[in-house]
Write a protein that binds this DNA or RNA. Sequence first.
DNA 1: TATCAGTACTTGTGATCACAATACCGTCCC
DNA 2: GGGACGGTATTGTGATCACAAGTACTGATA
Lengths: 241, 241
Amino acid sequence: MELKPHTHSLQPIARDTLQERVYLRIRQALIHSEFKPGQVLTIRELAQKLGTSIMPVREALQKLTVERVLELLPTRSVRVPVLSAEEFAEICEARMLLEGHMARLAAERADAAELERIEEASRAFLSAKVPSPPTVIQQRNREFHFAIYEAAHQPTMLELIEPLWVRCGPCTVALFVDLGVEKIKRGATTHHQQALDAIRAHRPAAAEEAIIADIRATSERYQKYRREHAEFFASARHPLA
Amino acid sequence: MELKPHTHSLQPIARDTLQERVYLRIRQALIHSEFKPGQVLTIRELAQKLGTSIMPVREALQKLTVERVLELLPTRSVRVPVLSAEEFAEICEARMLLEGHMARLAAERADAAELERIEEASRAFLSAKVPSPPTVIQQRNREFHFAIYEAAHQPTMLELIEPLWVRCGPCTVALFVDLGVEKIKRGATTHHQQALDAIRAHRPAAAEEAIIADIRATSERYQKYRREHAEFFASARHPLA
DNA sequence: TATCAGTACTTGTGATCACAATACCGTCCC
DNA sequence: GGGACGGTATTGTGATCACAAGTACTGATA
């Protein structure tokens, strides 16, 4: 605290725990679909792969389980959830309520800098090459949405939304792979454009509507996807019957 | 599974882990305000009081921290949060959005049995003796609200609401103690009655309005309470400055 | 008397061990 | 050939230990 402003040579160094790094690494792997829906994750295997003891891993897995990103099996092992059509729809219901509200607030409150950030994220999404890996599209899409939600200045609600995205992550990416990235991207572009226009024009109702439409489209795509691959999911659904 | 329906002699026995029991015990203690806002909880002390090793306790505390029921200090100890007026208001914002929506759904969907459960919970709240411990009023109030939300049939959203209540718990009970139970109860009764009437008459908008009004009243009471005790909270707020 | 160094103690993190429950797999018998 | 049985490996839970970082108390000194 005695340091003068210009002496930025000694800033506090990172002091994150091993557990935290393990947590973030697994979380990212889930978002990037490095684990398949239904896959069981064991503590010792992950610990070996990550080069740590089992302690940080078991705490990281518990953290992800509390956030409902991972699912607790009756054996107390954890696995990547295979969301049923109903579960996915329910999460989307919650997302529509929360994210629609956040979009509304963003349209009311966004200042110039925040608007610029949103537009930048939108450009990044649009400029993604069409034959991109699904995780890239997913990432850009995520950044666009959260640029909006951060402009709502409601950190508590933002923290509620985050885990919902991670929970949808593995199944959404699986969906992307199956349907093809270009179709997904084309669908989202319209809603993104509408949302951006609404926020720019400070029209809260229109912004909420656009975001809700975007989420609803995802939800309906997943319903269709599940119906068409019912037999595949039937096997992954109950590995313990 | 081969057992006949009438042989209820051998049902599956409880197989919860020690960690789970510890978690529930601490959680209940928080709801019942056995810990004060700002109090630091240490692993070893709790372990000794509960008669276990430190392992179950440290996992239970982490669980509560992930749920934001407890707060992580820079030293990585945890403490019962002292919610600032702004933080409390933000949680209430989220609660109004989510719980208002659930009340709306309940008014649309509640069947006779669910309506009966709500009315029962309402009676229990009203019949609570006025000089009751604050935790009893809090408990009855909670049961009334959740009887409504369960009738909405949205388990995912219900899981989002639950931690918000636990987070408010310690500060709300402190508020009850300070303001007096009868004043709180009198204020809530009106809103409860309005909510119940609206659900019974299947009027979603009115139900949402009543629940939002109830939460807003709590929020405003806390604002007032904080302003009047600013000097007390100033000390508890930054125990590490 | 106020300040600072030094020490003992507290606390969370991470590793390792012990154990019970479960899952897996080969074998044997019908 | 197929299903039941039994042994082995795997897995999560809980306890204990080792350690580094931080805190508080103590005593000496200016």
